[in-house]
Amino acid sequence: MQIDLSAQYRRTRELEKKSYDDELPDDTFHIDNIGAHSGGIMPHQFTIHASA
């Protein structure tokens, strides 16, 4: 099937312009180094001791 990709393309550029005009960057709070150890520690490997 042939779809009109260029229509999508134009529409995207239009939206892009709009979305960046009214959106502030919100990446000031940023997680770093994530996944540097993907497949590393799994949460159930933490031991829990609620000490009294």
Binding site: E16, Y20, L24, P25, D27, T28, H30
Partner: peptide, 11 residues
């Protein structure tokens, strides 16, 4: 580049 610039360009 700051994050705002990167986000704009990354699109």
């Amino acid at each position: 580049a700051n994050e705002a610039h990167l986000r704009k360009m990354r699109n």
